[in-house]
């Protein structure tokens, strides 16, 4: 097996995550699909780190994980706040800025 095959798998997972973001309406599931995309990017970083024989990719993947954790915390807090006022976690219902 070519050691770069991980890149193909990461591309497939990234696409699945992107399709999920576009298709799903439940804001929490949309967030899970964003996590899929972030993980695919992380796998790409780790694979390139191995291909090039340098650890910088792993350090950046570590930073991406930290940013993902912060993003999930704030995003879920926003979802909870929207759910309190509108009693819904669907992204279609949050349309106050529409008109």
């Amino acid at each position: 097996m070519n050691p770069a095959n991980y890149l193909v798998l990461a591309a497939v997972i990234f696409t699945i995550g992107a399709v999920g973001v576009l298709v799903r309406r439940n804001a929490i599931v949309v967030f899970m699909c964003i996590e899929l995309m972030l993980n695919a990017a992380n796998l790409t970083l780790v694979t390139f780190s191995r291909l090039r024989g340098s650890l910088d990719g792993q350090v950046i993947a570590f930073f991406v994980m930290v940013v993902a954790a912060a993003e999930v915390v704030v995003g879920l807090a926003i979802i909870v706040t929207i759910f309190r006022t509108r009693r819904s976690a669907s992204v279609d219902d949050a349309n106050l800025l529409k008109y």
């Binding site: 070519n2 050691p3 770069a4 095959n5 890149l7 193909v8 591309a11 497939v12 990234f14 696409t15 780190s49 191995r50 291909l51 090039r52 024989g53 340098s54 650890l55």
Partner: peptide, 19 residues
């Protein structure tokens, strides 16, 4: 994506992280 990556990595080789 898969086409482009698959075409680009046909002769890819990894340095490895041992060193």
């Amino acid at each position: 994506m898969v086409g482009a990556i698959g075409h680009a990595i046909t002769h890819a080789s990894a340095v490895g992280l041992t060193s």
